[in-house]
Nucleic acid binder design. Structure first.
Lengths: 136, 136, 136, 136
DNA sequence: GTGGTCTAGACCACA
DNA sequence: GTGGTCTAGACCACG
């Protein structure tokens, strides 16, 4: 697993890490049951404090993305969201709204926007398929 | 100018505001010489402290994006390169990809996702329209 | 709000704090919208590090129990669990099973156990009622 | 002897085990001179490392609750005061109150809660019965 | 003043 | 070796 941190983006480091784990899980690059990098080695590799990684992993566990077995390590859980449908809807709506406002500010019209969404979704599914085949 | 803040994104509010101004300038949605919203009304509208808006504007001025004329307001400076359509698509792609990862993580399928995107886009246009009429 | 910590119980301090907030919220001693004690003052009062309180509050926010407005403070949210019914059922089952095993080890029979459960539930409702009346 | 572990309670596993042995001794469920489960089989049954069980037993021996006869096993020592019914109810009350607070927090009503308690108690008795028959 | 992030480093529980 | 808890103290964002 490969991480790319940007210390000047304003986004907290622990969130960048958690987001990248989530993206890897979503794209299929990380498969359910697979172990995540250990906290201490990863902290050294990213030149970040151990607690920062620990916080990222703790958040992911609180959200049901990973399972952590003390003494063993952290592992990707099967994708069952623990949240109510309404809570999921709200979270997703927020992400979508941000993209829409970005489109507005960048003066990208509705048709172009929707086309781009479809294109990215297809690309995403392609990536998942590729990962699945690579692991056969 | 329309702003969308996310208080739980981890991105500092003042950076969210500055980023959105920059995006609008990059696309030409905000033109050279045009005034930005006043600090006080904007602070009220976004339910945010005036210092926060002031900091966002101060940063933009430090970067040469806007010009502050004391007593008059803030205005977009000349020389903001308009980004090409492809560059704008790249910025948008980031936002869209985040929404797609969230959708996967929240176990929302393609059809539901696209439907939600369309619904939110329509809601957004509704808001814009109402806003525009209120300013006639 | 009054806290009672036991540093030798083995239960992490941040969980003792979070549990007591949850109990206060459930019993009605803390009402929705009310502010929790500030992190720094509480840390001093309990002679505990600031980060420990912060972790307790962060967990409570992640679980949707409280809302934290940076710069303002932490406030009790209306009691809407964000979890799916199945997840709620599992969590509750675990608590109940622990009580049942305790009853078994303490050789308390089924009838006595159920009677005690009913008695405690009534006492709990009584406490809520008393708190509600005290706040009229 | 039946054990129930909760790996997410924050209470160290070795303390959960020791606590349950103490509770059984306090109620007379475990009698003076009776043997405790062997370390190795118990470790397997609870899916826990042998060191963890060993630590629980070592603590109990240090407190004079049990006696370890190397090569033979661990046995309950004499002199463990049996608690009165009222004292046992107090211990149980703590566990029950925690479950009630959880129920309130998870928005489970009185009727549902009591039904779940009864259901779990029946399931527990079923497990006990199966266990007893397996040991005939 | 509030809460949030990050660091450095100690000690504990568990395998 | 793993992850978890706690401390002490610095700096940031926000009101």
């Amino acid at each position: 697993m490969l991480f790319q941190l940007n210390f000047h983006s304003g986004l907290p480091v622990y969130r960048q890490i958690a987001d990248q784990v989530r993206a890897a899980a979503a794209s299929g690059a990380l498969r359910t049951g697979e172990p995540l990098p250990g906290i201490r080695p990863l902290a050294e590799q990213l030149r970040v404090n151990r607690n920062t990684i620990a916080k990222a992993y703790a958040d992911l566990e609180a959200q049901g993305v990973i399972e952590t077995l003390p003494g063993k390590g952290c592992f990707l859980k099967a994708g069952n969201s623990l949240l109510k449908k309404s809570a999921r809807h709200d979270l997703l709506t927020q992400e979508i709204d941000e993209a829409i406002v970005a489109a507005h500010h960048l003066q990208v019209g509705k048709e172009d926007f929707l086309a781009l969404v479809k294109e990215r979704f297809a690309a995403f599914q392609q990536t998942r398929k590729a990962h699945a085949e690579a692991n056969e």
